[in-house]
Design a protein around this nucleic acid. Structure first.
Lengths: 194, 194
DNA sequence: ACAGTATCCAAGCAATTGCTCAGGTTTCCT
DNA sequence: AGGAAACCTGAGCAATTGCTTGGATACTGT
């Protein structure tokens, strides 16, 4: 029930230490991919990262902080892709969907695991900030093709797209034709409400 | 990583014992609503149910089994509502969406918690059976209005509806107008692909 | 009433968990 | 070179977990 703003207990200054921190976060990611959230404990993370448990706690105040760092890492990767889409593009929607799908299928099990973990966290200001940023980016990219969109409709469209991509990532939906299906779903909804 | 088919260790025969079993399952539900999945342990469940830990393990072989029973209980409630919708109705889609929304908002926190827990379980035959049954029911109810629907499109429509209802249940989407939004999203998608 | 069965209780064990701490090793800087 | 700072180690503690077990209590049919 802690908020989502812990800093590393101590910032790594040497190259070796930076690598250690990255290894710890990546170890957590691999455990989530290969096992599940229950199997994620600090002893295992340290072992998987090839460092001792003491080292882990030198940089992360608690287990929670490792997950937050991992979530930030993944989130920033997706946001960077979305921000890179030019505003004037005719195929902005397609580009957004493609980015989301690429992100999801790069490490599907990790994406699915983080999806659930993130919801267990209290919706701190940071999680909302991401939702808002995606809404802002989407708004900028879509108004050109769909005109002014009500905020609630924009959120709905985003939820639709997210849901479909996640479902496909978890195997509930066939992957081929996914891009077209998502684009169709979003497009037809937005056209229906404008 | 166990499959989803555990029977109670021993079936309750007396009325008192049936009530005890129900109390245990309901205690688990309340803990999930008031705290989160991490706070759900067998000792706490027994305490919340007002029975001793030994009693709990007389009817449930392990913690997992309690959750499975709870998931079954909730799932069957929704399925019963869906099955009750008459096949010939013109407003079958609206009725399905209404049932889903009613189920979600009856106990929103519980629905959200189970949503995530269910995914952590291995997709045993039973979870798939539910997905298939919903698909079958939907197919029967929707073909009258939308003609023959490809299976992948039906699944897509279901995922869209589920995603929107869940998102609203978790507060990501406004609740008012939810029914209309879901109906619009499903309808416009199905019309677009047929 | 009374045996037999069903039900319940709760102390507590074995394993796991998050995390600390006292001391060793490597890197940096002059 | 050599001292200080940064970095790393891993034994192990306190708390929590899932679960067992031995025995007390309530219900059932006759």
């Amino acid at each position: 029930m802690t908020s989502l703003t812990p800093q590393p207990r101590k910032l790594p200054t040497q190259r070796r230490a930076v690598a250690t921190c990255a290894a710890i976060v990546e170890a957590a990611a691999r455990i989530l991919e290969e096992r599940d959230a229950d199997a994620l404990n600090t002893n295992r993370i340290a072992e998987r990262a090839g460092v001792s448990i003491g080292t882990l706690y030198q940089y992360f105040p608690d287990k929670h902080a490792i997950l937050v760092t991992l979530i930030r890492r993944e989130r920033d990767m997706l946001l960077a892709e979305l921000r890179a889409i030019p505003e004037g593009s005719d195929t902005a929607l397609e580009a957004m969907v493609a980015a989301a799908i690429r992100h999801q299928f790069a490490r599907p099990r990790l994406a699915a695991a983080l999806e659930h973990i993130e919801q267990a966290f209290p919706l701190g200001t940071e999680a909302n900030a991401m939702a808002e940023e995606i809404a802002t980016i989407s708004s900028g990219l879509l108004t050109r093709r769909f005109g002014a969109i009500r905020h609630s409709d924009l959120l709905t469209a985003i939820v639709i797209a997210r849901g479909l991509v996640n479902a496909a990532g978890e195997g509930l939906l066939p992957r081929d034709g996914l891009s077209d299906r998502v684009v169709t779903a979003v497009k037809s909804y937005l056209l229906a409400v404008t």
